[in-house]
Design a binder for these strands. Structure first.
Length: 480
RNA sequence: GGCCUCAUGGUCAAGCGGUUAAGACAUUGCCCUCUCACGGCAAAAACUGGGGUUCGAUUCCCCAUGGGGCUACCA
């Protein structure tokens, strides 16, 4: 029987969910799920200086919020815990000791000063294996004396390491290019280089899915798998997501934060869908996909090797697709927080505004700016009445408006359809194109060149009292 | 600097020796239309350069150029 696929997402708690990280998590999730496997969450918090309060919750929330439910993790449990590295310190110490016995690592007592003295003319530094020659007795004596130490990996001085990456193919690195990196820091905590290997093995990870930044350091990890006699995992390295041609999407530029996009009014389904498309394309030529669709369509040969640039314009479009696919109620619920920050909150029927806005916005964040002006009719430029096609201007507005006002005052059915039919007929009575009536009316009640909906939709929304009040105000402006 | 790696329109991205080199976003134009938007139709737009291999290279190989990564007691 084939072994069960187990993938993991192993972020450091930095306080925000990076979109690149989210994509890595997504691919790991998709790979596992499309193979009937398990997806595991592990928190890599070995760098205590980078500890951020509440950061782990951000990871939980982002993952679950996007539908990437993990089968094992700190908050959901599992048979391979603990799933937080800072709680596994003794495990690493034990394996480090074992690796030393196997000759794959050694204690090092070198001072920072000595290390710095190793820097050559080009500014490069490579550890010289100085402490490798220490005898066991000497090492024990110095440890007993309380001297601080680290544990370094013992990398062969010659030879070549080769492995097969499922995306990039055969990768070969000469050992001479690698350094005896620190595995256990002087504070007793492991570095990524070590914890990552120990945990992936102990947690039964079969497929390691991560960014290309690890492509050339993977031989170091394989050396450890081999030394312990463990089976190497399958490697799947992913190309980076860029902000532009030369910069990666980064925290620094504030353009990579999942939460920020949520605040701007992007839907999490759209974000997940969009990042899935950066670096992967399904066999079928489709772009809008649910998580379930993606599980069905996911395959490694659709993953590209080149970096891709994050294009917010396309994300906007996709987000718009999701918005238009929602039911009116779904959209209303999603839009409500944004509607409530608008100046119209409490003045008009938010549900009706929501229906008007649904086909007209690509992100929820655009909502307030699209309707704020609706709250009050202020002074506006009378040249807005100018319309060539309908042959209108301020003068025609002045002559048409009283009759329109009278009509609107006389009817009680303010539904869009009734208003449209009634005003069209009225235009006939007045001997003008219906477009002229609609244009003049729309400007008169909104004072805007562009509105989310036509004259009748605006009037229907405003209601009789407010409509008449605004027409009066416009007539006043016109006679100044 | 050394090593690893990548390279199709502005962007994402099909293609995997012979194609009119898909599709999507963005752009432009037209249609629909009570403005805008939605929707529909159409246009413009690409194989980084140079050598090979081959009857034939976007596709395979090499070099150059350009981009990214690694070179930490960060991950």
């Amino acid at each position: 029987m084939e072994e069960t696929v187990r993938t993991r997402f192993a972020p450091s708690p930095t306080g925000f969910m990076h979109l690149g990280g989210l994509r890595t998590a997504l691919y790991a999730y998709l790979y596992a799920k499309s193979h009937g496997g398990k997806f595991i969450l592990r928190i890599e918090d070995t760098d205590q200086q980078r500890f951020v309060e509440g950061a782990i919750d951000v990871i939980y929330d982002s993952l679950k919020g996007s539908g990437l439910y993990y089968d094992e993790g700190p908050d959901v449990g599992g048979d391979y815990g603990p799933y937080v590295q800072s709680e596994r310190k003794e495990i690493y110490a034990e394996y480090a000791k074992k690796l030393i016995e196997l000759g794959g690592a050694y204690y090092c007592f070198c001072s920072k000063e000595r290390l710095e003295s190793l820097t050559d003319a080009n500014g490069n530094r490579k550890y010289d294996k100085h402490c490798l020659s220490l005898t066991k007795e000497e090492v024990e004596k110095r440890i007993a004396a309380g001297e601080p130490y680290v544990i370094r990996q013992n990398i062969p001085t010659e030879g070549t390491s080769t492995y097969e990456d499922l995306i990039y193919g055969t990768i070969s690195i000469d050992y001479s290019e690698l350094e005896d990196n620190i595995l256990i820091k002087s504070d007793g905590m492991p570095t990524y280089n070590f914890a990552n290997v120990i945990d992936d093995h102990l947690m039964g990870i079969t497929h390691v899915i991560r960014g290309t930044e690890y492509l050339s350091s993977t031989p170091k990890y394989n050396l450890m798998y081999d030394a312990f006699g463990w089976k190497r995992p399958v490697y799947i390295h992913l190309p980076p997501i860029m902000k532009d041609a030369t910069r990666k999407l980064s925290k620094r530029y504030g353009d990579a934060n999942f939460d920020d996009f949520l605040k701007k009014g992007y839907l999490k389904e759209a974000i997940i869908n969009y990042v899935a498309l950066l670096g992967w394309s399904p066999k079928e030529n489709v772009e809008k996909m649910s998580l379930q669709d993606m599980i069905r369509l996911f395959s490694l040969d659709g993953i590209s090797r080149s970096q891709s640039i994050f294009d917010e314009a396309k994300l906007r479009w996709l987000n718009g697709e999701y918005i238009r696919a929602m039911s009116q109620d779904e959209f209303y619920r999603a839009a409500l927080p944004f509607l409530q920050t608008s100046a119209v909150n409490g003045k008009f029927d938010l549900k009706r505004i929501s229906a008007l806005l649904q086909p007209r916005v690509e992100t929820l964040g655009e909502i307030p700016e699209k309707i704020d002006w609706l709250a009050e009719l202020g002074d506006y430029d009378l040249s807005l009445f100018n319309n060539k096609k309908n042959k209108t201007d301020a003068e025609t507005a002045k002559s048409l408006l009283p009759a329109i006002r009278e009509y609107l005052l006389s009817v009680d059915d303010y539904s869009n359809d009734a208003l449209f039919a009634g005003l069209s007929a009225k235009a006939g009575d007045l001997g003008v194109k219906s477009g002229a009536v609609f244009w003049v009316l729309r400007i008169a009640v909104t004072g805007q060149g562009v509105t989310p909906g036509g004259a009748t939709e605006m009037v229907s929304l405003l209601g009789k009292e407010e409509t008449v009040r605004r027409i009066d105000r416009s007539l006043e402006l016109l006679s100044r």
